[in-house]
């Protein structure tokens, strides 16, 4: 049954992701990216990660995309890309061929792979018992405390970096 939901969502994620790359108008690219984010958040829902799904929509599709669109429009990039950035057919074909080969290399072994991988610790029962948001919160402050703290340092570095580079 899951397949009925998963396949359309995965297809939507892939198609919109490709559109982000091949569309010529930056505004359309940004809007396609919103489509990708929505499809991904649907997949997160399928995995019973409701909290991540909602955060994905609020943070990525909401805040970050609005920021992208602001920049695109403020810098007046909303028209077609200049000629030197436009597609160069032979190179595009070579690139697409290389990607196809790499993709096949990924898909063939994975396809022949019988699912013997173990479950991670967060099964549906565990998540159902604790509640999704509570579980994320608890993990952040116990098991993933150190990664969580490192992330705060990364954000601090990003702020310093933005300030240093933007200051006159």
């Amino acid at each position: 049954m899951e397949w009925l939901v998963f396949v359309p969502l995965a297809a939507m994620a892939l198609v919109t992701a490709v559109l982000v790359i091949i569309l010529r108008n930056p505004v359309y690219c940004a809007l396609s990216l919103v489509g990708t984010f929505f499809a991904l958040s649907g997949i997160y829902l399928l995995l019973q990660a409701q909290f991540v799904a909602v955060v994905q929509v609020i943070v990525y599709a909401g805040a970050i995309m609005v920021l992208f669109l602001f920049v695109v429009m403020l810098l007046d990039l909303g028209h077609e890309l200049p000629a030197w950035l436009q597609r160069d057919r032979p190179r595009l074909l070579i690139g697409a061929g290389a990607v196809a080969i790499l993709l096949l290399e990924l898909v063939i072994p994975v396809g022949s792979w019988t699912a013997r991988a173990p479950h991670g610790p967060q099964t549906s029962e565990v998540v159902g018992a604790a509640g999704n948001t509570q579980l994320v919160g608890r993990l952040l402050f116990t098991e993933f405390l150190v990664p969580f703290e490192i992330t705060s340092i990364i954000l601090l570095i990003a702020i310093i970096g933005a300030m240093v580079l933007a200051r006159r």
Binding site: F144, V146, P147, I150, T151, I153, I154, I157, A158, I160, G161, V164, L165
Partner: peptide, 16 residues
């Protein structure tokens, strides 16, 4: 995950 975050930490500082 920590290895990745360490990598991002120093990379981000080095970009700046």
């Amino acid at each position: 995950i920590v290895i990745f975050l360490g990598l991002e930490t120093f990379s981000l500082a080095l970009y700046t």
